[in-house]
Design a protein around this nucleic acid. Structure first.
Lengths: 182, 182
DNA sequence: CAGAGAATCTTGTCAATGGCAAGATTGCGC
DNA sequence: GCGCAATCTTGCCATTGACAAGATTCTCTG
């Protein structure tokens, strides 16, 4: 992607977002540095500012991308509520950086237009998926389902869960989600 | 607590932990600064190092305190599984800084002895509380219960939940947790 | 009660970071 | 081909975390 020797990068925005996701997956947000991302992309330390303004701007873009990716993950399959929950967990584990920044309003600009739009669309998908598969209060069911998959994903990512569960988060998630439907 | 005019603070460790919890509750971990905590406590910028070593050391101490506080919250009441879940959510909402740092291993030293001990004790409480109130697989029930309350608490704290739920997290949590028992 | 040693806190310093300003280079529309 | 906007660079500054060395106070022991 990097056109070496060229003054212009080619697709610096994409490269910075990828580098940010990679760096965060490795060592967490705490150690994320714009200057390090710039080094990874082979540009000067001030280049990121032009594309994202500041650090919050970059993370806002990452969060927006996260909601889009989660939306796609939920749309795929359409195998019912259980598999939608598994898809939620799979997304979180495969894209831990996106997932984290999506739910950390202190890291992004929650009122950003693009972010708000992507977030609203994906949330509607979350609610809609539940409403058609339940016979009870859809509000409560929706919230319970969201809570249980979100909690499982968060606990898994934080390393809080016992090693007894093995290395396959999707299998473990399936068991837990099923518990909600019995 | 601050003995003004005195060279020694009196209880700087306590003051720094309180200031950290307050600062994090206000503006998140991202903006947490040791130097700002030192200013709040009225000491020089290098004073915190003597008590906690470095930033990770301070957050490790905060996480340890968090596990102790959560343990006390779970022991109180003993009103069954539902109320234990509500207590979990109440703890998270009342002590958002402690809660966050407890589940962010990138912010603390997970192998710290005091932290590991407090964590193990409180986790045992979590598992034990579930095991005696269920007739099914206690492992699955424990994990499902932990996931749903942890997910609800996390979502609530991140501001992701719709305003329709009102301003009382405990009431909303009760409704959601009950859904797991039906 | 006196003094030694430990605990606590301070000042000084350094590299790294985020952000801003001003200038250089390149691509694009007319 | 020319002008202008987009992109990227270098240079700079305040803030931060961490470390080192020194000052002050507490405590323990004799």
């Amino acid at each position: 992607m990097t056109r070496s020797g060229s003054y212009h990068h080619g697709d610096l925005r994409r490269a910075l977002l990828d580098a940010a996701a990679e760096a965060m997956a490795e060592s967490g947000v705490a150690e994320l540095s714009l200057r390090d991302l710039a080094r990874r992309a082979g540009v000067s330390h001030a280049a990121p500012a032009h594309h994202f303004g500041d650090k919050a701007g970059l993370l806002t873009a990452l969060a927006t991308e996260g909601y889009q990716l989660l939306g796609e993950a939920l749309r795929e399959g359409d195998d019912g509520l259980l598999e939608a929950g598994v898809a939620y967990v799979r997304f979180a584990v495969r894209h831990p950086a996106h997932f984290e920044v999506m739910f950390r309003p202190d890291l992004h600009r929650a009122d950003d237009q693009d972010l708000a739009a992507a977030r609203a669309r994906t949330r509607e998908l979350l609610r809609g998926g539940v409403a058609q598969h339940t016979g009870r209060d859809p509000d409560v069911d929706s919230l319970a389902a969201w809570s249980i998959v979100h909690g499982f994903a968060t606990l898994w990512l934080s390393g809080a869960l016992p090693p007894r569960l093995g290395t396959d988060p999707e299998a473990a998630a399936r068991t837990v989600i099923r518990r909600l439907f019995s």
